[in-house]
Amino acid sequence: MSIQHFRVALIPFFAAFCLPVFAHPETLVKVKDAEDQLGARVGYIELDLNSGKILESFRPEERFPMMSTFKVLLCGAVLSRVDAGQEQLGRRIHYSQNDLVEYSPVTEKHLTDGMTVRELCSAAITMSDNTAANLLLTTIGGPKELTAFLHNMGDHVTRLDRWEPELNEAIPNDERDTTMPAAMATTLRKLLTGELLTLASRQQLIDWMEADKVAGPLLRSALPAGWFIADKSGAGERGSRGIIAALGPDGKPSRIVVIYTTGSQATMDERNRQIAEIGASLIKHW
């Protein structure tokens, strides 16, 4: 067993022997301040990774656009098919120029040779490549099948209805392509620590998230040296922004954090800054 596999296998073990965790309302004060600064709703939840206990939450059962955070769930569904012998990570998928959609920095470079399922998941999570996500959605049967996968996990809230990039439209009061912070946090925890996926697939999923290259201005910008984070960000229309993450000190994750916002007129930089400040408060009061 590799060191990384050992780390993920012992996530519940280490967490069980940690000192009790206590909620700190100071972080919620910052979440509410972010709402004021952005002029928009902000949803927040913080779960203990081992027990699933909610440590703090704000608007945990209000719907927010998922945006690209759905790509972690998508690759979880792909990995479940791999575990069941219905898919192979090494299978190569070929596609054409007509398949390319807006923001496809990886797939646009491989029109000639195609990409493997493993490479597509890596591109979808680490670079948020939209064509990679659409190609992977095709392998599982489309958005409705991802929703069905989530329902089978016990998540009857999260739903995907459309493809990239239309799913980022974020129309107010439109339930399409949305989740709730509580539902997303619980589902992410199941994917990373539950028995739904094999140990190898859980490790692969967290490795992809740990290698995320496009979430630097968010929670990662607030992390002290030595902290662990595996995350996936999302951005959408109407001032929408979000991030889902597993993080913790001492090089291992111990909490799940989900943050979503929508309806702001603020710039992307300002949305990023507010999420980073929430992260800084979380870490300060850990």
Rank of each mutant, 00 (worst) to 15 (best):
V29M: 11
T69K: 01
E61K: 13
L247W: 07
L205Y: 02
V8P: 11
L19H: 14
L219Q: 04
P143D: 03
L247T: 06
G43V: 00
M115S: 04
I275W: 02
P60I: 12
L196Q: 15
E26T: 13
E195H: 14
W227I: 02
D129V: 00
S2T: 14
M1W: 01
A235W: 01
E237W: 10
H5D: 09
N152R: 15
R271P: 05
R202T: 14
E35V: 04
L160H: 06
V72R: 00
A211G: 13
S254I: 10
M66H: 05
L49C: 08
D231K: 04
M115V: 06
A170K: 06
P224E: 06
G226F: 06
P181K: 00
D129M: 00
A245S: 10
M127D: 07
Q88W: 12
K252Y: 12
L146A: 06
R7V: 09
H156Y: 15
Q37P: 04
T126L: 08
W227H: 02
D48M: 06
I171F: 13
W208Q: 03
L160R: 01
L137P: 00
A148L: 14
I278W: 02
K109C: 09
E56W: 05
R189W: 13
T138V: 15
I171H: 15
R189A: 14
Q37W: 13
N50I: 10
T267W: 05
M184T: 03
V117Y: 03
K252I: 11
G85K: 11
E277K: 11
G194D: 13
D99M: 12
A230Q: 02
F149I: 10
T116S: 10
H110F: 12
W286N: 03
M127K: 09
N130M: 01
D99S: 10
R59N: 09
L247I: 11
T107M: 05
I171Q: 15
R255Q: 03
P60Q: 13
D269V: 12
A246V: 13
P65K: 04
Q265G: 13
P20M: 04
M66R: 00
G39D: 12
P20N: 14
T193R: 15
A230H: 01
G226I: 03
I3Y: 14
L167D: 03
K144V: 12
P105Q: 06
F228R: 07
R189I: 07
S2Q: 13
Q265A: 15
H156P: 10
T267V: 10
L146I: 09
G226L: 05
A182Y: 14
E169I: 10
S264D: 04
G251C: 09
L282Q: 06
D48V: 05
G226Y: 07
G239D: 02
P224S: 06
I244D: 00
D36I: 15
F64C: 02
I206V: 13
L218S: 03
W163L: 13
F149H: 08
T112N: 13
K213E: 10
G52V: 04
S122T: 12
V157A: 13
M153I: 14
L49M: 15
V157D: 15
P217C: 07
L19W: 15
G248L: 00
